[in-house]
Design a protein around this nucleic acid. Structure first.
Lengths: 138, 138
DNA sequence: TTAAAAAAGCAACATTGTTGCAAAATTATT
DNA sequence: AATAATTTTGCAACAATGTTGCTTTTTTAA
């Protein structure tokens, strides 16, 4: 399969396997974020559910993908644009959920704003999720 | 039980039942947000799981509580400070998740910032979740 | 090519959430 | 205050989602 994919895996010190290649490929060709279920469907039911779970977990740990908070109960994953150090995602972009097409996008160029917290609170990380209508649906 | 609780329920045109009183009571005495599981435990296993699910759903619809997005896969609920119209939550505060005590708080006085979106995107709602260390743990 | 290490697949299980329906409780009506 | 109508509860059964241990297979290193 694609050489780029193999390189991403090797750079993260992961052995190159069919499922990892396939799943990473799905993220690379997909503009939006993917939930576990999406991946199972798109992968063409080749892989065991457990393998998908473990692969996603590994990718998050290695900083290849990151999770996106949602109001409904589905974890969504998207590619990290820059390489994140193992487990330390230094992405500070915001996320956009389209209420029409239901896709979730990373808006990589929009940086999370600073938030003034009340006294006594210290901030380590800020997540911003904007809901609305996306470019394609507008 | 408490008269305030009965009034909140009646104001929302809900019949007053033991489970609704109990669950609403839990929210009123709890500073932070509650997940479905928390409620089942704190309620003293008196109520059926299904009843808890349905009660939470009803409370959200009636604008008594609102959901909070999380990075992990747990929906959390918190009281709406002002009365929200049925299904239309007009809260614009941010949420704070303490990485130490794991509690989630509504910071009612901190309003969500404006976000400049790329061309073609329109925003309907903004969610901000800050992760850090809270007042009590600092 | 072979040995060691890592990952995949399988089975079984745990948790979480949903639906339909009968029994019980609440509310509205007389 | 008693009854009828409505709503809610609890139960059972099910569906979806996520987890764990272990064996087989694949990948990597020697």
């Amino acid at each position: 399969m694609n050489t780029e994919i193999k390189e991403i895996l090797k750079r993260s010190q992961l052995s190159v396997t069919a499922s990892r290649e396939k799943i990473l490929h799905l993220f690379l060709e997909e503009a939006g974020a993917l939930a576990h279920g999406d991946i199972e469907k798109k992968a063409g039911e080749k892989f065991d559910r457990v393998t998908v779970y473990r692969t996603l977990q590994t990718f998050v740990e290695k900083g290849i993908i990151h999770t996106i908070p949602t109001v409904d109960n589905s974890i969504r994953y998207a590619l990290c644009k820059d390489n994140c150090a193992d487990g330390h995602h230094h992405d500070h972009h915001i996320h956009f959920v389209c209420s029409h097409c239901k896709n979730t996008y990373c808006l990589d160029d929009i940086v999370t704003p600073e938030i003034k917290l009340p006294k006594g609170y210290s901030s380590a990380h800020i997540e911003v999720v904007v809901e609305g209508v996306c470019k394609n649906c507008n």
